[in-house]
Design a binder for these strands. Structure first.
Lengths: 112, 112
DNA sequence: ATCCTCCTCAACCGATTGGTTGACGAAAAC
DNA sequence: GTTTTCGTCAACCAATCGGTTGAGGAGGAT
């Protein structure tokens, strides 16, 4: 099975699932409520929620027949940590490159 | 075709592609250099790079037969913006919930 | 007990994905 | 000009994905 970071990125690679997450950020909801706006079957949404759950983005409890879905926003940190790490590395590289170019500009015209 | 945000998330949903990005954060590299560490064909890596390119995460220039690959870190912002937006919404909701619970605790024991 | 509501599981389907191999293109190197 | 190096394109393959429909389970409501 894939690692969690892969599952989180993959889960959010689908627009419907991102929309579900966006709506769950506002409020918990049942599967039926979540499915209503889309013109796909309830089962399809249930599958999407399973993917989100396996990524750790969402949890489902039980309230009689209802299965309230709840967003687990902490998992976002996994992604932001990864992203920020490499963004920062890339930016540092740019800075070093800038510094190098600046030094080369300075020595321009020396030693004819 | 999918929107860019979907393509970026999907691109990073694959561990090999995340690894390529990680290595490109350190330095630009040619396709051959990038492919060397993995035990898959050069063509497979070329495909991965195409996915990264279509997501806007990477650009390829031309230097003789070489095709240096360069990381375009700005696209990360697309993701972090999306993530931060919904994380924040979710956190605000928690704060409101905490406040509500606090108020209920205060009125505990009143009106017997 | 029976029915109804809410939801999941299972089987299936076409499209996409990550991989393969083989052929080809562009630009040095000979 | 021929060869070699570096890389892409094309066709194919098994596996996964997003969707469907049909059956069924858990738990009120009657």
């Amino acid at each position: 099975m894939a690692d969690q970071l892969s599952r989180v990125f993959q889960a959010l690679g689908d627009p419907t699932r991102r929309d579900l997450v966006a709506r769950l950020a506002v409020a918990d909801a049942t599967v039926g409520e979540l499915a209503a706006p889309y013109d796909v079957s309830l089962q399809a949404i249930s599958k999407h929620l399973k993917v989100l759950e396996e990524a750790g983005l969402v949890s489902r409890s039980r309230d009689a027949q209802r299965r309230p879905v709840h967003l687990e926003a902490e998992v976002f940190d996994l992604m932001t940590k990864w992203i920020e790490r490499y963004r920062q590395e890339a930016e540092e590289r740019f800075s070093r490159l800038d510094a190098l170019l600046a030094r080369e500009d300075e020595s321009e015209g020396e030693a004819p």
